[in-house]
Design a protein around this nucleic acid. Structure first.
Lengths: 136, 136
DNA sequence: GGATCCTATCGTAGTTCTACGATGAGTGCA
DNA sequence: TGCACTCATCGTAGAACTACGATAGGATCC
């Protein structure tokens, strides 16, 4: 019964519905949120769109289409992916839609990435540990 | 001849081979690198693997398999994706392979995300700009 | 009301992702 | 040499991604 075990990693299902056959890590939403935001930025076109929006603070869909070598429908699809992730907001302004980056979400993404590396300066890398295993 | 226009965003082709029919942004590799690293972290299982590796500094594949509800082959596939992105390094240590996170790459990822938001504190959000377009 | 502009959505085709089991390659030990 | 262990790779099936053109919906303008 229930979902297969690998569904533990499905991003679209709330954590409480997931059959956690192993104890979750400290923050159950951490991995899902980070993965969701990272996935949204996991395409060069979407990175460019976000940069474009940040540079202009806000602009409409047509502006983005003009500056990308992609069809209008494809750009709209990328914008939908960005909106679904929360990174981008779209506000209807008359016949057009004004898009802008939700800087709080972007900051949260930055924060999540930062929390990934808790002790960057502590051990420079794992070389020493590897040498211990290889040489004796 | 040549590649279709949307191939401008293909991540696996060096920039010089790309038919840039529009001028590139300031840093040609920026978007590709950020997208590549973000894509690597765009799956909850890979985020967990990276966290797991960071918590232990380094460990072998079997340890990861034990702590994930995934088959060994699937974990190996995720590790390959992480290795291809550069985030993770694998070192052969006898019959096993010792994996660790390349903290320099992780830091570069964090830097790329940080450079995405050049002036976070400047304009809090784009609401003002939206109001300008909506109301007058 | 009708024309126009902007954007979202539909339908579709090809590619990529993601999961699994099975198998193979490599190392170390008896 | 043979066995055990570890991990990568192969083959495959289903889902998701990504591109496009075509079309529909909503707002504005004449």
């Amino acid at each position: 019964m229930g979902l297969p075990a690998y569904r533990i990693f499905t991003m679209n299902i709330p954590p409480k519905q997931l059959p956690m056959d192993r104890p979750p890590l400290d923050e159950p939403g951490f991995e899902r949120d980070l993965a969701r935001l990272a996935k949204a930025l996991g395409h060069p076109a979407r990175v460019r769109i976000v940069r474009f929006l940040l540079a202009r603070d806000a602009c409409m869909c047509g502006d983005i289409v003009e500056h990308l070598p992609l069809a209008q429908s494809t750009v709209s699809q990328h914008l939908k992916a960005l909106k679904d992730s929360g990174l981008v907001q779209g506000t209807i302004a008359g016949p057009r839609v004004c898009y802008c980056v939700d800087r709080k979400v972007l900051e949260r993404f930055r924060d999540l990435v930062g929390r990934l590396q808790p002790c960057l300066e502590a051990d420079p890398d794992c070389r020493g540990l590897l040498d211990q295993q290889e040489e004796p």
